[in-house]
Nucleic acid binder design. Structure first.
Lengths: 224, 224
DNA sequence: GACATAAAATCAAACGTTTGATTAAATTGG
DNA sequence: CCAATTTAATCAAACGTTTGATTTTATGTC
């Protein structure tokens, strides 16, 4: 079937690499980079310790590979949305509607999706102590996503896309979402939730949606 | 002068303990618990390595002591505000005004105060992997502060203080603030700021204030 | 008040364990 | 058979903790 007898997804090499990246992403996100030992990763990935050095040059190389993996993942799901934004940004109602859709997706992704939760945790940990891995994620995810959201925000409110106020406004909208992941432990206790699943995410979406509408309306007033 | 020749604040015991807690707080917050070695702490605190085990029973004991220290600090500055909330919550305008004041203080504290930044970082790190230290901070800071903000929120909007919607709404207001600390690195790059100082904090305050007013107004509409 | 005793705190050194990395040999697949 | 990959063994360095000796501070006795 394939030109190459060992497809990328099936070769021993790629299977080992994928297992290490996947496990590294999970453990780095779960326990942090320093608290995760290479032995732990190798054991859970059913690979040898030496594999990490062989394939990635070392523990830090694996972290970079994890960051690259995240960029690929997010781009896969975000690209269609970002593409739609280019045209939607020209129309107020379309921009507002798309903002709602993106916010809805983001919340359920960041807050409730267990698979994505590990990705978010990984990135948040990188954020507190920047490494080359953060550069990769910032350039590949943060910057393009935030920029697009600014365009939508500008389309919905009439503000300038790259003005300081717009960029800050978009950060506040993102922030109110991210906190439910960052402060998850405090949220769970205060809300008396056992977990943040689909139902809880819906309650969060409802609140964020009200905030979004209110914020847009307040900005819109100034510019008729 | 003193009844006791060695006062608590001056005794060798208390000086050593205080130095270790202060340094521990800073380094744990800066690098994380696992990435901070006891040797690092002892060296920076100008104390002996054995002192940590002697005074706190070990590295984890020092972390608990740091958490307790945070509770004492925050209670010192927050108590007056929380007391004022009890009466302000009865009046819509007073509640709204106090919410504004608290939000203003919180933002400048969380986002720009370098001293407090270490405290915030320490807590955020604990949040991602709960330890007994988090229990201490949650019970001593998070729960009482969030509960009080809910009362104010209810006073300003007319909602029920302990309803699910109110508790979530308050979390979204906190979240839009905290993100500027959590995602500081991304914010700095995207905003092209060198640091988040008083001026940058003011810009954030302005955005958060608009969001707060808009959110309250939107909720108020429903209940005349 | 001076001296002797007890208690508390500090210190440098060493403990056993675990860390990430490296090596050379064994295994695998084309 | 050869190159790529995996494996097990080994390395020095760093980890948190423990130790016994020493110094500092507090208490008791006359």
């Amino acid at each position: 079937m394939d030109k190459t007898p060992t497809r990328d997804t099936g070769s021993s090499r790629e299977r080992t690499r994928a297992a290490l990246i996947e496990t590294g992403l999970r453990l780095f996100g779960q326990y942090g980079f320093d608290a995760t030992s290479t032995r732990m990763i190798a054991a859970e990935a059913k690979a040898n310790i030496g594999s990490i050095a062989y394939h990635f040059g070392g523990k830090e190389g694996l972290r970079d590979a994890c960051a690259q993996h995240i960029v690929g993942m997010v781009q896969g799901v975000a690209t269609p949305l970002l593409a739609a934004a280019a045209t939607a940004a020209k129309d107020r109602d379309a921009a507002t509607a798309l903002l709602h859709r993106v916010l809805d997706r983001m919340i359920r992704f960041i807050v409730a999706d267990p698979q994505a939760g590990l990705v978010v945790q990984f990135v948040l940990r990188e954020m507190t102590l920047p490494t080359p891995a953060l550069d990769i994620v910032y350039a590949g995810v943060f910057e393009p996503v935030h920029r697009t959201l600014c365009e939508l925000w500008a389309g919905a409110t009439g503000a300038e896309p790259e003005s300081e106020a717009t960029r800050i406004d978009v950060f506040t909208m993102i922030g109110q979402v991210v906190y439910f992941r960052v402060g998850r432990e405090a949220v769970l206790r205060r809300m008396e939730w056992q977990a943040i699943g689909p139902e809880e995410a819906s309650a969060i979406v409802a609140a964020a949606r009200r905030n979004l509408d209110a914020a847009i309306a307040a900005r819109r007033k100034d510019r008729p």
